[in-house]
Amino acid sequence: MAKTDTQFLYFTYYPKDVYPDVAMALYFLATIVLIVQIIRQKAQLWLYILPVTAFAEGLGYVFRLLCVRNTTFTLYVLMTLFLLLPPNAMALANYKTVGKIMAQSLARPRWFFLRPKFVNWFYFASDILSIALQGTGGGMMTSYKRRDAGKKIVLLGLIVQLFFFACFLATTFYVGSKQAYVVGTGTRSAKRKVLFTIVATTVLLYLRSIYRIVEFADGYGGKIYSAEWAFYAFDTIVILLAFIVYIAVPLGPHFVRGKAVLNEEASPLSTHIEPKD
């Protein structure tokens, strides 16, 4: 089978090889910048989730570039999985951030679903579930016979992800509305910056998930699936913008190793909160 025929069989269009080069370079650059920031800020180690995610995205475009130049089944599978799954880890970083704020503050709501331990495990489990569904479905879609079943599983994973994103945004706005929850030294400015980063990146991930849902619902060979510009506009650029937000308004300075959140505004005598045990 000719190279061009193989390309069209997998992509349903003839992809350009210049775009993966640019995307790969930008994501690897974001990886380096994030690592340097975390080291200089002496940020907590869990924030390395972000550069690892950026690196995984960069690898996705390495596989896309290789697949464009020499389209094979193996390269197509690797490209699909590395471009589909890494953004889930970005969501995990956001979940961890809000969980840290809640755990290190004096306030603890009476409602169990707003308590730090539940928030940490609930959203962590949701992320693992979403990754498992999307990974399984993405792998199945590389087989012609299982493509339809794989598409449905990926769609289910993306819809589950959107639901948990909505729940997480509600939790984040709750944390933002309560003075008992503080960040770093307890200044309002620090809290606004952290919440801006969390909300902005979560909204971008939400938009990317909506695009992916439309893409998979449209089906193999559909107008959205076959539009290369749509992939770069609503996946590549959207996720890159999220990394730019993380770099421009970093989380690291507010989560320094060895320093806990100093809650100066919370009062254990408040009627709407309980002090930690």
Rank of each mutant, 00 (worst) to 15 (best):
K178I: 09
Y13E: 07
D17F: 08
D277G: 14
F82Y: 09
T271I: 15
W111T: 15
Y13N: 04
A217P: 03
L9S: 14
V203K: 00
T53H: 07
L133R: 00
A103D: 12
L26K: 07
V245G: 01
V256F: 08
A227S: 15
Y220H: 11
L133P: 01
A103V: 05
A25S: 03
R208L: 07
P268V: 10
G138K: 09
R110K: 13
T136F: 12
I32K: 00
I153M: 09
L84A: 10
L240Q: 02
L195N: 03
I224M: 07
L34C: 06
L45T: 09
F243S: 00
V77W: 13
A200S: 11
H254P: 00
S226P: 04
V160R: 00
L83F: 09
L133W: 01
G138P: 04
T80Q: 09
E265K: 13
S209H: 04
Y174W: 12
A23Q: 01
T171D: 07
N263C: 14
I198A: 08
V154I: 12
Y181H: 03
G184F: 08
W229N: 06
T171E: 11
V194Q: 08
A248W: 07
L59F: 13
Y61L: 07
S267V: 14
Y123G: 04
R115L: 03
G219D: 07
Y232N: 03
E57N: 09
T136W: 08
F82C: 11
V182Q: 13
I247F: 02
G139E: 09
L92A: 15
D21S: 08
G137Q: 08
I153P: 02
L34R: 06
I101C: 15
L133D: 05
Q179F: 02
T197K: 04
T72S: 15
T172Y: 09
A132G: 10
R69C: 02
R64T: 04
P116N: 08
Q44A: 10
A217S: 14
K145T: 14
P86H: 03
R188Y: 03
L106Q: 14
L205C: 07
K16M: 10
F231L: 12
Y13I: 04
Q37D: 06
G184Y: 12
Y19M: 13
L106K: 14
K117S: 11
T271Y: 12
F8M: 07
A227M: 07
T31L: 12
Y27N: 03
M24H: 11
R108I: 08
A125G: 12
G252W: 01
F196C: 09
L162K: 08
V119S: 01
V245Q: 02
L75D: 05
P250L: 04
K193C: 02
I101V: 15
D5N: 09
